[in-house]
């Protein structure tokens, strides 16, 4: 299990390769890379802020919960802070499990919680100035998928 909060640009492909090594019990690996969007020239830069010493343990606790809930063999989270340019990776999540469904759901669960619950603050800089971004209603809605009663598959 690995959680990293960093200012440096990272290569999501390299992160996935590193994660996939040494997981002989894994039947599947799933990854998600979130990329800063240009949004039709509206976004010139994103600025991400964390609370050092608070944000990392929060994500570690989330990963621990995901591991237990989805029976994950491994999980990795990388989250950028500081200035982020359009096209750069902002977040990376990878999960490994014995079977694909657990790996998919584990990654989905991690991303839904990182999006609207993790202690980060995001400012969008564009031609019209800067504004703080709050989660969309849809982001909060996504969270309820993990608390609502599970429907049979």
């Amino acid at each position: 299990m690995s959680v990293t909060v960093q200012t440096d640009v990272f290569d999501a492909g390299a992160a996935l390769s590193a994660f996939s090594l040494g997981l002989p019990d894994a039947g599947g690996v799933v990854s998600f890379t979130g990329i800063a969007r240009n949004d039709g020239d509206k976004t010139e830069m994103l600025e991400l802020e964390a609370y050092p010493g608070f944000t990392e343990p929060w994500i570690e606790a989330l990963v621990k919960e995901a591991r237990a809930r989805f029976d994950l063999i491994g999980a990795m989270v990388i989250h950028r802070v500081g200035p982020i340019l359009p096209g750069e990776a902002i977040v990376f999540v990878a999960t490994a499990a014995a079977h694909r469904r657990q790996a998919f759901e584990g990654a989905d669960f991690l991303m839904d919680h990182l999006k609207s619950r993790a202690p980060f603050w995001k400012k969008e800089h564009g031609p019209g100035g800067a504004r703080w971004i709050e989660p969309r209603q849809a982001d909060y809605q996504d969270l309820t998928r993990w608390t609502a009663e599970q429907t049979p598959r």
Partner: peptide
């Protein structure tokens, strides 16, 4: 660095952080 609710006593040198709605990735 621990979330709290309501009023609590602050020890000397306590760090109090106010955290607006959060938004990651």
């Amino acid at each position: 660095k621990a979330l709290v609710r309501g009023n609590i006593i602050l020890s000397a040198g306590a760090e109090v952080a106010f955290l607006p709605p959060m938004s990651g990735g």
